[in-house]
Amino acid sequence: MKKQVFVCQNRCCRQYGSDRVLAAFQRDPVEGVTVKTCGCTGHCGNGPMVLVEPDGIWYWRVHPDEVPTIIERHLRGGQPVKGMLYPKVHHG
């Protein structure tokens, strides 16, 4: 199944710069990965939120300068970036 990256563009995440996070993903496209916007993910105040599907991996408080790490390690390398995982969803 093709990977999809969803970057929340709802009001709260946009307030924290999710538009710049989206632009950072779009600047470095990965073959076989689609980057999309989405509405509220229900994690307001913890954004910008990024969801990678079908992996079910949530990243929180993502800054644009962290996007290359997600791209290299997770999208190209297949390993989620543990230090950036949303602790409310990913325990341990």
Rank of each mutant, 00 (worst) to 15 (best):
N10P: 01
D65G: 06
C12I: 15
G32N: 01
V33E: 11
G47C: 06
W58I: 00
T69P: 02
M49S: 04
K88P: 10
V7K: 03
N10Q: 14
R14V: 08
Y16F: 15
C38W: 05
E72R: 15
L75P: 02
Q79M: 04
V21G: 07
E31A: 14
H43E: 12
D65N: 09
G83Q: 12
L85I: 01
C40L: 10
C13K: 04
K82M: 13
N46K: 14
R61S: 14
C12D: 09
N10R: 11
T69W: 04
W60C: 14
P54K: 10
G42E: 02
V67F: 06
T34E: 15
M49A: 09
Q79E: 13
P29K: 04
L51M: 14
Y59F: 12
K88R: 15
D28T: 08
V89W: 12
D19H: 13
Q9M: 10
G77P: 06
F25S: 00
Q15H: 13
F25Q: 08
R61K: 15
E72I: 02
S18I: 01
K2T: 15
G32I: 06
S18C: 01
H90N: 03
E31T: 11
T34D: 14
G56H: 11
N46S: 13
D28S: 12
M84W: 09
V21Y: 08
G92N: 11
R73I: 00
P29W: 09
C40W: 11
Q15Y: 13
R20G: 02
C12S: 14
P68I: 08
L22N: 06
M84A: 11
V30C: 10
Y86L: 13
L51T: 07
V33H: 06
T34F: 03
F6I: 02
A24K: 02
E31L: 08
V52T: 00
G42F: 10
M1W: 06
L85V: 00
C38F: 08
G32P: 07
W58K: 01
C8I: 09
G39Q: 03
R14L: 07
V67Y: 04
K36A: 07
V89M: 13
N46R: 15
H74N: 01
S18F: 04
